[in-house]
Amino acid sequence: MTEIERNERYNKYVEAKIAKTHAWPSLFNAFWIGGFICVLGQIFNDLLLIWFPTMATQSAWTFTLIFLIFLASFLTGLGVFDKIAVYAGAGTIVPITGFSNSIASPAMEFKNEGIVFGMCAKMFVIAGPVIVFGTVASMIVGLIYLFL
């Protein structure tokens, strides 16, 4: 038996050995918390439009996102966000709250290494790819539409 065969066999064995956890509860949690965050955004958006009837729809949406981002970083700061997230899983990662948390959490974590090379540089360890991919993709889309 070669080493590669042995490793393949071992990997398969380990894979089979891992106890299958029941996925349903975590799917349900992700569903209701994710849905709840979206409804929260919608309610804030609607209230905003009631209070400021002259506001443009696009601006209202931007304010809604800013509100949710604020909420998520604040809860991250208080140390509550990760407690909710361990229960909700993707329910808090996929909404914009996850993006906000992924910037605030390394900022808090690495401030011991200094403001410049610690907090500010490490702030984007997780969110960096989101910004890079987003920017590049939007430029590609723009280019396509430019030549269409």
Binding site: G79, I84, V86, I93, P106
Partner: peptide, 17 residues
Amino acid sequence: ERQFRYPLELGNQRPPT
């Protein structure tokens, strides 16, 4: 955790293994 994995306050679920 910070050296090998993620920031402490990052909201992620630890895999069952």
